[in-house]
Amino acid sequence: MGSPRIRTPEFLALTALLAGLLLFTAFRYPLQTLALNAASVVMFLVSLWAAHVLLGRVRANGFAALALAVGWFAEQMGSSRGWFFGHYTYTDVLGVTLGDVPLVIPMMWFALTLLGYVMACLILWRRPVLAAPGWITGGLTAWLAALIVTAFDLGADPYFVFVLKAWIMEKKDGGWFGETLQGFVGWMIIGFAIVASFQWRARPVAPSLTDPLVSRAVLVPLLIYASGLVFQMIWGHPIEVRAIAFFAMGIPLFIAGVAWFQWIQPNGPFVKGVTP
């Protein structure tokens, strides 16, 4: 386990391809677009690395392919037909597009659904991967993962609309700081569909703590979510979402963080403290 799995030809080829995307963006788009693309590419690659360590190469690649495809389809249907999220149009702020959808958007879907899955498993089952999900356990995991992802979107969407102007909503007053409440229904549906479909198609092997990379890989989703929380608390717009982010994202992050400590230290104080 560990490093041999992630040093695969397809991983290196993907890294080179994404580097080419950034180089093209640097020549054709403003610095802000390059920075947004670079952040998204880094988030995607470190999430893919974490998935390789936690799920194995085949399952990780399958999760990524599923999230990329479903995420792109949902956004394409949303921007062209108003499905899932309401009617909106992407601007050129996020750079190169496939159809109507910037390439970085499906990458974000993968990173967010992976972190939602890992955090949901930690919160519900005190382990980062649900190795043998049934209908009930798999459904609960997918539902909580979708809630965690949507909690991130509560503050992210208004920022992308008002500050970055990455897309334009057709309905200007949708009930949530310029976004539509329908959009959160869409996030729940797509987030649930990705995680549930992954669990239905794959049965990951539970990672072992004997692999020194495993505990670090679990931290990747937590740190990505934590960085999003900090960003929204400092720069969230409008100002109300800063308080919303503290609770909506802070509560699941706190519980998942404690569960991570319980998992890596099964005989530690976090476990002993609740033992009768």
Rank of each mutant, 00 (worst) to 15 (best):
A145Q: 05
L94R: 03
A74S: 15
V104Q: 10
W135S: 10
G71P: 04
A132K: 14
M107W: 13
W135C: 02
A65D: 07
A142L: 05
I105Q: 00
T89W: 13
W109N: 13
G139Y: 09
F63Y: 14
A67C: 11
L112N: 14
L98W: 14
I123C: 09
L54P: 01
F85W: 12
G95E: 09
R57S: 08
G62S: 12
W109C: 06
L115A: 12
P102F: 08
G95W: 10
V53M: 02
D92V: 06
G99H: 11
D100Y: 08
V101Y: 03
R59F: 03
L55K: 00
A64W: 03
M107S: 08
T97L: 04
L68K: 07
A111W: 07
S79P: 06
A64V: 12
L68W: 10
N61R: 13
R57I: 01
R127T: 14
A67T: 07
L68D: 10
Q76W: 12
L144M: 08
T91L: 10
A111E: 11
F85E: 02
W72K: 05
L130T: 06
T137E: 15
L130Q: 07
F73E: 10
Q76T: 08
L103V: 15
L66A: 07
L130M: 08
A145V: 09
L68E: 11
G56L: 02
Y117N: 06
Q76S: 13
A64I: 05
Y90W: 12
A69E: 03
I136M: 11
L94Q: 04
L68A: 10
L114D: 02
T113W: 04
G138N: 07
L115Y: 06
F73D: 06
A142I: 05
P133F: 10
G116C: 05
I105Y: 02
F85A: 01
W135L: 15
A132R: 15
A131Q: 11
L114E: 05
R81C: 09
I123N: 00
Y117T: 02
A74I: 06
N61P: 01
G86H: 12
